[in-house]
């Protein structure tokens, strides 16, 4: 199941590995993504810590780690095709895969419906 943060990242748990990206709402708000700076494989990240930087034509925005863990893979395809973040933010436009230090941390995040309500209120 996909969970969301207030800073518009999504996270999806598959076994003991989580995939992280930015939401459709965030991708639309950013506009045309032209560059994504990804962390290194093996980097440890804290919940709420900086995970990546996404640059649109107009501005740079930070992407935060929804939970703590270690980066196990990054989406290298975004280097050549950053526009995938706009085209398929929750699929091909994923940013990183990471371990989950504490699976219960996911419980504190919003589910799809709660996130929809949250965005509607912005």
């Amino acid at each position: 199941m996909m969970k969301y943060t207030e800073s518009h990242e999504w996270i999806k748990l598959d076994g003991d590995v989580a995939t992280v990206g930015i939401s459709d709402y965030a991708a639309k708000a950013l506009g045309d993504v032209v560059f994504v700076e990804l962390p290194g494989v093996g980097d440890d990240v804290d919940a709420g810590g900086e995970l990546a930087v996404v640059e649109s034509v107009k501005a740079a925005s930070e992407v935060y780690a929804p939970i703590a863990g270690e980066v196990t893979a990054v989406n290298d395809a975004l280097e050549a095709a950053p526009e995938t973040v706009n085209a398929a933010p929750t699929e091909g436009g994923w940013f990183v895969k990471m371990t989950v230090a504490d699976a219960s941390a996911l419980d504190a995040l919003m589910d799809e419906d709660a996130y929809k309500d949250y965005c509607a209120g912005l």
């Binding site: 506009g31 045309d32 032209v34 034509v57 107009k58």
Partner: peptide, 12 residues
């Protein structure tokens, strides 16, 4: 207006 629905890239 900073951008229209076409988006910055498309407008450019």
């Amino acid at each position: 207006p900073v951008q229209y629905p076409l988006g910055v890239l498309g407008e450019h």
